[in-house]
């Protein structure tokens, strides 16, 4: 009895320590974020006030309203949703399938393909932009959703990520299913994919996020205002001669929200994943 009581107390102490550590870290993480929110509510000259005020004298909420009124940000927002959702959907399939293939099968050229996919990550995007643009132009995809979606339809990062997670899943499950007469697609979709759900949600989050923030490629591939995505809309706040920091911060904060929502929903998958691994026993 006494031993159990002790254990319980130890757990409580460790819980407290965890909370304390997390809280300290949270403060460090939150500080720049709070600073950005505080800046977003200031007037442009207040930003550089010394000493800095965390709470502005007057909260300028209009910084959040004005940009959405004057610019075509609503359309940009819609374009971003269309592009990011489509790209993410495509990637869920292409990356998980390729990752599964590289992790769980042996065939001629597998390692070569895998290394080649990894190698594509190692070239700075800036230089391949021109030939990529040339190709997309030849397909007639400039100023179309296709031009924004298809080149981003798979990702070396995603393939690599999924491969590494599939490696952690025991192959015996596949063997067992094969003996039961399950088809290869069946094994993949019904057995393997559900097992890497936490990894899939990670993939969804990262692909969605990357595309939501993607700037350089849309900048090149789009010239018509009605096709521009949110980061391009936000960039039009930048001026050669001046930056309205409060409005820039406000718009950026607002544009971050959708990704945070995706993340918050997806991170529940982790907890489900946890329950699942508990069930395995």
């Amino acid at each position: 009895m006494a031993a159990r009581g002790q254990a319980a107390r130890r757990i409580k102490i460790s819980e407290l320590a965890t909370y304390a550590a997390l809280a300290i870290g949270a403060l460090a993480v939150a500080m720049p974020f709070l600073y950005a929110i505080s800046t977003s509510l200031k007037d442009p000259f207040e930003v550089f006030e010394i000493p800095m005020k965390w709470i502005p004298a007057v909260a300028h909420w209009e910084n959040y309203v004005k940009p959405f009124k004057t610019m075509g940000l609503a359309r940009n927002f819609l374009n971003s949703v269309i592009v990011a959702v489509s790209v993410t959907t495509l990637n869920v399939f292409t990356c998980s399938m390729a990752g599964y293939s590289f992790a769980k099968f042996r065939y001629w050229g597998r390692d070569f393909f895998f290394l080649a996919v990894l190698a594509t990550l190692m070239v700075p995007l800036q230089v391949i932009l021109v030939p990529l643009f040339e190709l997309v132009k030849r397909f007639g995809w400039i100023n179309t959703y296709r031009g924004l979606i298809i080149p981003a339809g798979t990702s070396a990062f995603g393939v690599f990520l999924m491969r590494q997670y599939f490696l952690t899943v025991p192959s015996e499950l596949m063997e067992a299913a094969r003996i039961d007469g399950c088809s290869e697609t069946g094994i993949f979709f019904r057995i393997m994919l559900p097992l890497v759900k936490p990894a899939l949600s990670t993939l969804v989050i990262f692909i969605f996020m990357n595309n939501w923030n993607s700037f350089l490629w849309p900048l090149l591939a789009v010239t018509r205002e009605e096709m521009m995505t949110l980061p391009l809309g936000i960039a039009s706040f930048e001026s050669t001669y001046s930056t309205n920091y409060p409005q820039l911060m406000a718009v950026s904060m607002a544009s971050t929200l959708p990704v945070l929502i995706v993340f918050f929903t997806m991170q529940r998958q982790f907890i489900e994943g946890m329950a699942l691994s508990g069930m395995k026993s």
């Binding site: 990356c95 099968f105 042996r106 597998r110």
Partner: peptide
Amino acid sequence: GFLFAVPA
């Protein structure tokens, strides 16, 4: 298994 990798 190889076919799984083809789209990517």
